[in-house]
């Protein structure tokens, strides 16, 4: 046996965590490679400048959009739609999902209904939503709502069902009735998982937002991109994509921060 300190550290180690510095460098590195290839491809004239503008031009355009063209207004509208529609979906999904996960009788009523809806692609409702709600905010919110609500209900229910039976039985033998068991044991036990599920589903909401705004909207990031298409402004389309990506990332980070702030007791788990 060689002494352990003589062991050479290798780049690839199975399931061995890496230093934070290496993680950050790796993350930056992959993006440098991505933009590098993009830059070389455009500057080197390998691609049609009209279809693929250089990254520098896209960043310039993004800046201009913000400074001169009031892009922030479009972003505000888009963010507003996502937040409102998602809040409505969560307001329904969380209570319903927790009830379904807690009471098999309630699950038996709603689960067959909810699972069927999950297999209906939300965008297929766009024509009828437009006929019902016209062209205002309502059809967009409805699409976003339909796109996530059934998935969110199912996720919340599944997480609720995973709350360990011993916790529930402990509550019962301490004298808890049904409502105390649900509100003071099941709900706090499942809440961290619910917040994680919401974080995941928020990303999906952004997907439906772009669909809604591309199909039927004159405002918002998606609408801006469709306008840009008409005038062959590929740089503006790519700006839109980058901004959507950045917003998605920002919301993800916000949810992660909220998770840490809401559930400090999960931090030091000894497993």
């Amino acid at each position: 046996m060689r002494p352990s300190h003589a062991r050479k550290s290798r780049f690839l180690e199975v399931r061995r965590s890496i230093p934070r510095r290496q993680a950050i460098l790796s993350a930056i590195g992959i993006w440098i490679v991505f933009f590098g290839i993009w830059l070389i491809a455009t500057e080197g004239g390998w691609v049609n400048e009209l279809l693929v503008p250089s990254p520098l031009k896209v960043f310039q355009t993004t800046w201009n959009l913000f400074v001169d063209r009031g892009f922030i207004g479009d972003i505000g509208i888009s963010v507003g739609r996502v937040v409102i529609a998602f809040a409505m979906a969560a307001a329904l999904s969380v209570p319903l999902g927790v009830m379904m996960g807690s009471f098999p009788a309630i699950e038996a009523i709603f689960a067959p209904f909810v699972s069927a809806w999950r297999y209906l692609p939300a965008p297929s409702f766009i024509p009828i939503l437009l006929m019902w709600f016209g062209t205002g905010e309502a059809p967009k919110l409805a699409l976003l709502f339909l796109g996530v609500v059934f998935f969110l209900i199912t996720l919340v229910m599944d997480h609720t069902k995973n709350v360990r039976m011993e916790l529930i039985e402990t509550a019962l033998t301490l004298g808890a009735n049904r409502s105390v068991t649900v509100m003071h044991v099941i709900l706090p036990a499942v809440l961290p998982d619910i917040v994680t599920a919401m974080r995941q589903m928020l990303a999906v909401t952004w997907t439906y937002l772009v669909i809604a705004e591309i199909v039927a909207s004159t405002t918002g990031i998606g609408a801006m991109m469709m306008r840009a298409r008409r005038f062959l402004k590929t740089d503006e389309i790519l700006s839109g994509i980058i901004v959507i990506g950045a917003l998605g990332l920002l919301f993800d980070l916000l949810f992660k921060a909220a998770h840490r702030w809401l559930f400090p007791y999960l931090k030091e788990s000894r497993g």
């Binding site: 360990r164 011993e166 402990t170 019962l172 033998t173 301490l174 004298g175 706090p188 809440l191 007791y265």
Partner: peptide, 27 residues
């Protein structure tokens, strides 16, 4: 089930979201 027969399980049943004090106060 009722509070006159308290039960301790083999699996850990501490309520992770409550401090020790609040766990013990729960019942």
């Amino acid at each position: 089930p009722g509070r006159d027969r308290g039960m301790v399980f083999q699996a850990y049943t501490s309520f992770d979201w409550l401090t020790v004090r609040r766990n013990v106060e729960f019942g």
